[in-house]
């Protein structure tokens, strides 16, 4: 379970980017994070993948209070979180294979297992012929798929994706959302930040809406009711 309790975030001495954010994400839930540009989606994602410490409030993750945890224990929590960054953040000197293998190597998974899992996943995301390619030789869509593969390779407990389908064709976008749904069915909690209303409507998961640093969250039961009413 992920719980934010009256969380606020400001950069330096500037105004609060996020104010009084409180929500609970149950294990295995799937949410779309939406909101206008500059609403604080990326900042909220940063708090969720422990890229920043909140300036106030409490963050609970997987039974731990993040604010009070010693710094060196946070690495284990981060290993349970997969992140697809908006700008992909691939390591340019490493092949697609090595980029995807990185989280497994950090977890000291045996090389034979890494080889099997990474090749399988790259094949699945349509990059089976590009395992040795350096990221800067891949198209934007291909790089995004490598980034997604890197985020899901460890089957994280929480997957956060910032505009994961932004550079993808509709078909591949839908295919990747299907992959996310499969992961969700296996127990991964998902939060996907997106502007793509078409995608949100198609998959119909509840929304977390950020506006001017304030968050409102669509209840799972309201989403379920809509689904049953055939809105989606």
């Amino acid at each position: 379970m992920i719980k934010f309790d009256h969380v606020g975030l400001r950069y330096g001495i500037g105004p609060e980017i996020l104010s009084d954010i409180s929500f609970v994400l149950e294990p295995g839930s799937f949410h779309f994070l939406t909101g206008p540009s500059g609403a604080g989606k990326t900042s909220l994602m940063k708090l969720m993948y422990l890229g920043r410490q909140p300036t106030r409030g409490m963050v609970h993750m997987f039974g731990n209070i993040i604010n009070t945890m010693p710094r060196n224990s946070l690495a284990a929590i981060r290993q349970s979180i997969g992140v697809v960054f908006q700008d992909f953040r691939l390591l340019q000197h490493m092949s697609a294979f090595d980029n995807v293998a990185l989280p497994l190597r950090i977890k000291s998974v045996p090389e034979a297992q890494i080889k099997k899992d990474v090749n399988e996943l790259l094949e699945w995301v349509g990059l089976g012929d590009h395992v040795d390619a350096l990221p800067n030789t891949l198209s934007g869509g291909q790089q995004q798929r490598v980034a997604i593969a890197r985020a899901v390779i460890t089957r994280p407990k929480l997957l956060l994706a910032d505009e994961p389908t932004g550079n993808l064709d509709d078909d591949i976008g839908i295919r990747l959302l299907n992959l996310f749904e499969q992961l969700n069915k296996m127990g991964t909690t998902l939060v996907i930040a997106t502007h793509d209303e078409h995608l949100i409507d198609r998959f119909g998961h509840p929304r977390m809406m950020l506006d001017d640093g304030q968050l409102s969250i669509e209840k799972q039961d309201s989403w379920l009711r809509k689904k049953l009413e055939g809105v989606f």
């Binding site: 993948y49 422990l50 890229g51 060196n72 690495a75 284990a76 981060r78 290993q79 349970s80 979180i81 992140v83 953040r89 390591l91 990185l102 989280p103 950090i106 977890k107 890197r150």
Partner: peptide, 15 residues
């Protein structure tokens, strides 16, 4: 940026 990325995907300081 690369160091921060490793940090964010769970690499320990030792790693």
């Amino acid at each position: 940026d690369e160091i921060e990325l490793l940090h964010l995907i769970g690499a320990t300081d030792n790693y």
